[in-house]
Design a binder for these strands. Sequence first.
DNA 1: CGATGTATTGAGCATACTCAATCAGTGTGG
DNA 2: CCACACTGATTGAGTATGCTCAATACATCG
Lengths: 234, 234
Amino acid sequence: MSSPAKHNCSVCSLKKICLPTGVGKDELERLEALVQDTKVHHTSDEVIRQESPFRNLYAVKSGMYKSVKLNDLGEERVVGFHLPGDIIGLDAIYTKTYSSSLVALTTSVLCQFNYDQLVLLSAKMPTLQAQLMRLSSKEINIANAFQNAQTAEQKLAGFIHNLSARNAERGFSSTQLILSMSRQDIASHIGMAPETISRILKQFQSNDILIINKREMKILDPARLLISTGCAHA
Amino acid sequence: MSSPAKHNCSVCSLKKICLPTGVGKDELERLEALVQDTKVHHTSDEVIRQESPFRNLYAVKSGMYKSVKLNDLGEERVVGFHLPGDIIGLDAIYTKTYSSSLVALTTSVLCQFNYDQLVLLSAKMPTLQAQLMRLSSKEINIANAFQNAQTAEQKLAGFIHNLSARNAERGFSSTQLILSMSRQDIASHIGMAPETISRILKQFQSNDILIINKREMKILDPARLLISTGCAHA
DNA sequence: CGATGTATTGAGCATACTCAATCAGTGTGG
DNA sequence: CCACACTGATTGAGTATGCTCAATACATCG
């Protein structure tokens, strides 16, 4: 399921978007010391169990994870996908228990931070405190992002555009995407049937907006993709 | 548009859910001193303009506000409704500009906190820092709340249930609700046509789940309302 | 090579939208 | 004081979008 690994924030390529952002070089060591361990997970590994008590924040070091929420009727819903540099668990600070389970979508690595220790440290490090608030604020924006979409086309275009933008933010390609998640997962996340996902992807392909082969996607026309989201005009 | 008013957190009935939560009595004075002013607004007053630079967080003291987002196509969308004790602007910490406009839905009062000063103060007050993180975390949960709803009935039931729960949290009635917003606003917020709102409210009434007269709603059967949200079973 | 999980395609149908008319409540001016 | 317009809410009829159910294709794996 997982094995320990050595860790060092200062050499991590994600420090520009992760917790260390804005933290001074000397202070970084104190933050590093707080990373209790770094674990490797494999596809379908459950890392966090829904309803378990909140203790740690996690940062994605590599790979991809999904958050899955189960309601009282036993229906599953994918709440979000997590890319390298993403902080997981910020929503549980308020509820004191994790509101969803965390599952690895591919071979992935996670860094673990004890929240109480992080708070103690941030009281002494204004830059860390500021970054914690920024990341929390960012999470609110992410959660609100899908509010705009009305039609299935807009929802799916919005999802792809968003994934592309997050990839770009991390220095990855914004046009060449690997969908580590299944169509089923995408469908669950944006609230539509997997069959509709297929049909609209086909439509995007025949309009030369993108090419998709299994789980590899190439965006040909980012501008028209943006128009399809219903957020911008031609 | 607005007139200054005297302010005092210590005697405010909302301190149990607002910024002062967890802050000691002696420290409260320092937080109070930070409230630059308290303004009275009237129906349709625009308090924050979308895209304007972020400087302040706001707390609702009384009444109700809505956040409205305009996209590049000129389409308006209600992003949220704000009840007394709610903190407004947490999403703008990351973006540095307000992502939506704030409009009063009825005669309402707002407290204003300069964010930079709040951060400086929270560096010296761990309890205030903790509450800022808790409130930010809470906001993530609120933003994720509507993810579950599939059908129009579930969306509307979820909206009413949520409003009822937030009312209860503030010590107001959970069964007697005043809808300060229009049907149009509700429709925009939960993403459906105002006509459908009418029809489903009618359906809830004929099923004796609630009674609605203009903008006054009485919830008769909270249990069946919860079932209608699709989050619980009979 | 069959078996399994994932993705796609097809056909029929239901939900919720659009468009249009009506109704109720509020405010304005003659 | 009442006629008129104006806004918001409701009701009705027709339609389209996206879901459901079912079959098929495709890939991976033991």
